[in-house]
């Protein structure tokens, strides 16, 4: 079910913990990455078998943590922080501007599947606010203009 590369990583992870269950969350993140950014029941069942836990347990874990997604994100997943420090320096405005440019609300994906927006709680870049994460990259000290420019660049 996993590609050879991911399976190697999974095996390595399992070997780092005393109990298979301990590797559940890192393995789920790997499985999610492999499955284009989201988890379906088949993925979760597969991981449940690997980690030797019941499927209900995996489902409980997946619905607890915000990074697990149960529907596909866009190609570029824009995770915009609007928490206290970012909020003080324009994080909310940044989010609203992004929603306006892409014509979708946070929690949704554009029709062409290229962009999705997620409103985030503190992402730990407070002194460099406003900050966002695009897929796995941090972009800090943004302004609405810089945001627009970045979205245009990503579209290419």
């Amino acid at each position: 079910m996993f590609s050879k590369d991911i399976q190697t990583q999974v095996d390595k992870l399992l070997s780092r913990y005393p109990i298979s269950q301990n590797a559940l969350i890192p393995i789920l993140l790997l499985a999610q990455k492999e499955n284009e950014g989201w988890l379906n029941e088949e993925c979760m069942q597969h991981v449940a078998d690997i980690c030797e836990v019941p499927l209900t347990h995996v489902e409980g874990v997946v619905t607890f943590y915000t990074m697990f997604r149960l529907k596909p994100p866009g190609k570029y997943h824009l995770q915009v922080c609007t928490c206290v420090p970012c909020c003080l320096v324009g994080g909310t405005e940044l989010l609203e501007h992004t929603e306006k440019i892409l014509d979708i609300h946070a929690g949704h994906t554009t029709d062409d599947g290229v962009f999705s927006i997620e409103e985030m709680e503190c992402i730990g870049a407070c002194s460099f606010a406003p900050a966002i994460i695009v897929n796995e990259d941090y972009h800090e000290q943004l302004t609405p203009e810089k945001m627009e420019k970045m979205i245009d660049e990503l579209r290419q």
Partner: peptide, 11 residues
């Protein structure tokens, strides 16, 4: 797990 709003030192 640095998540306290305002904190970005461990990173």
């Amino acid at each position: 797990d640095e998540s306290e709003p305002g904190t970005c030192k461990d990173r």
